[in-house]
Design a protein around this nucleic acid. Structure first.
Lengths: 247, 247
DNA sequence: GCAAAAGTGTTAACTGTACACCCATGA
DNA sequence: TCATGGGTGTACAGTTAACACTTTTGC
């Protein structure tokens, strides 16, 4: 491992839209910034920070992600660059930048990434300028700091597109899961009900799920079989994608 | 129109992948830089330049596009940000930057856009540091300056994905065109042969083409009917996209 | 026994794909 | 008359979408 002198680039940041799934709803990891007597909504922001000049963009995103969730080697994908002039137009945002940046007036372009993590494996902890890092229901978010709400919507749109073309959703699931839980994840992401029989048939035909011998316990209904996900078949499928998965 | 003082941002550029179609092959607009006794391949680059601090990113892309092709109000879509440290690693590229940039050692992140233009309507002209701006066959490009080859491949990949989900290809076609010409465009973009009868059936079912009364003249075969493209139906389709257009 | 989610097949409509011949024109 | 690309229909296979009942468990 080579250590390099790291220098913040004051003009370019990365922001991460970190999705999780709690077996019921789609979640996103947000931080609270120090309060400047604002309402809660505008204190919430995507985790993100300035990049270092000696790291690649995806390394920056991975670093920020690791600093904020303790996770590494996570599915991580670029959404795009956001650099409109009015992205730093809210009074509260400007005031906040004064307190944390050495060059608060600089025009900052942000490169947004999204990632999918297992909530159970993650251990979000607040970083320097964040007073908390917590999971929020995506559907309940109506406003965020800067242009982060736009970024969140773009990430969601890209995730919805990706989930029906690539088997990426497993990054959100625990190691063992039932088909019902998996279906709930698709429903939460796509925000619509799916037919149980059709869902099971389609997802099993992809050949990326292996049935285990284990079953749910302690549930007051017929216990469901647990499945694990077959990494080998997943990888070959992830390369090509699948055409016919239009829910 | 409000005039603002424009100031170059030395850390962020836009690069444009401008696709055209010459009724046979997919083309891309490239510039030649001043020669530093290099081979031709590495003198070729995507048109692009530093952004101004007082314009939005897509305004920057539109400005560069207009400066280089004379076109405005063009289909233009962001591909993403490219900022790997080794994007400025070639000796020739470093030497060239010394001659055109006031801060040639700066780490520059580029935001890439792609656009689709009618070659017949465009009037590419070389800008300040370009000695030429010409159309090249996409399939013949094997190397470009900086990381521009990567950007070109990413643009092509995105275009291929988009062309089967959105009726965007008409941006490449002249006002009137035959179905044969349209099919050739799809074949050029997707780089594969399509079945004529199936293509015609599918594309007509989209309801975005209006037949005209005019026919080809001066061709030594049965003259083809000209079609124009129905903007109204196109727009409503462009919003929703289409699911089933998998060639 | 009842509430709750698991698990299971069939049918009809639609979509994709493969495939071959005649037509109108210029040379 | 020949070479060239335009224009047309059908049949088979695969996929989507809609739909209802029985099973197993905890309480």
């Amino acid at each position: 491992m080579i250590k390099k002198k790291q220098q913040l680039n004051p003009y370019i940041s990365v922001d991460c839209v970190i999705f999780g799934f709690d077996s019921d709803r789609l979640k996103v990891l947000l931080i609270e910034r120090e309060d400047h007597s604002l309402n809660t909504e505008s204190t919430l922001a995507l985790p993100g920070d300035l990049i270092n000049n000696e790291e690649n963009l995806n390394e920056s995103a991975n670093r920020v992600l690791k600093e904020l969730t303790g996770l590494k080697n996570i599915y991580l994908k670029q959404i795009g660059a956001f650099g409109d002039l009015n992205r730093i137009s809210k009074k509260d945002d400007k005031a906040w930048l004064q307190t944390v940046r050495t060059n608060p007036e600089a025009r900052v372009i942000t490169i947004a990434y999204y990632s999918l993590v297992k909530i159970s494996d993650s251990n979000p902890k607040a970083s320097s300028f964040a007073t908390s890092a917590k999971w929020y229901n995506v559907e309940e978010i109506k406003a965020l700091a800067f242009d982060h709400y736009d970024i969140l919507r773009a990430a969601l749109s890209q995730l919805r597109n990706e989930i029906i073309h690539q088997p990426v959703g497993f990054n959100l699931m625990p190691k063992m899961f039932t088909l019902g839980q998996l279906q709930k994840m698709y429903e939460a992401i796509l925000n619509k009900k799916l037919d149980k029989r059709n869902f099971r048939r389609k997802i099993l035909k992809l050949n990326i799920l292996d049935a285990t011998q284990e079953k749910e316990t302690g549930v007051s209904h017929k216990p469901a079989q647990y499945f694990v996900f077959n990494k080998k078949n997943y990888n070959s499928l992830a390369d090509t994608g699948f055409n016919n998965f239009g829910f």
